[in-house]
């Protein structure tokens, strides 16, 4: 720009800007996001998806195919499994991955389909709350699970797993 152009009428001085500078505010990206959250989320979806396939199918196999199959499932069966730290870890991983995977999927769907920011905020708040409740509850159950329950008389409940006999006595 040359010095002689000082009196040029520029958009800032009250003249409407050329359209090339005028953009519907709806399309302006509010701020550049920092970090790589979306990338991590994207990778997580793929890794957790693959892990869940293994976790879920082994879970289904051990519950439904091995031994008596579907007929063996009762309180005792579950209690028996969770007495084993391997299964505890297995189910914990499955719970966390499945919940985070599903929640992130829902988050994406809300992002893609909710058109208003406020709608989005509400839906996501509910989603995250639900997710947190289920994860916390599930984790608590896995770690604080009491397999050998006694009735008022101090006897083992009759659906207790067999190893309780030795524990109680």
């Amino acid at each position: 720009m040359t010095a002689t152009n000082s009196e040029a009428v520029l958009p800032a001085q009250g003249i409407e800007a050329p359209r090339s500078g005028r953009i519907d505010p709806k399309y302006l990206r509010s701020s550049a996001s920092s970090g790589s959250f979306e990338m991590v989320a994207w990778v997580f979806m793929r890794v957790s998806g693959a892990a869940l396939v293994v976790l879920i199918f082994v879970h289904l196999f051990s519950n439904l195919m091995v031994g008596e199959g579907i007929h063996q499932i009762d309180f005792a069966f579950v209690a028996g499994k969770w007495a084993n730290p391997v299964w505890q870890f297995w189910d914990l991983t499955m719970l966390w991955l499945a919940m985070l995977h599903g929640t992130n999927g829902m988050r994406t769907i809300i992002n893609d389909y909710a058109e208003k920011d406020s709608t989005r905020l509400w839906l996501k708040s509910i989603l995250y709350l639900a997710c947190a409740v289920i994860i916390i509850l599930g984790t608590l159950v896995i770690f604080t699970f009491e397999p050998c329950l006694l009735d008022d008389a101090g006897n083992l409940m009759d659906y207790s797993p067999s190893f309780c006999e030795s524990v109680v006595n």
């Binding site: 040359t2 002689t4 152009n5 009196e7 040029a8 009428v9 003249i15 409407e16």
Partner: peptide
């Protein structure tokens, strides 16, 4: 009517 001024 708008008047714009440019060198070129």
């Amino acid at each position: 009517m708008q008047v714009h001024k440019y060198d070129v």
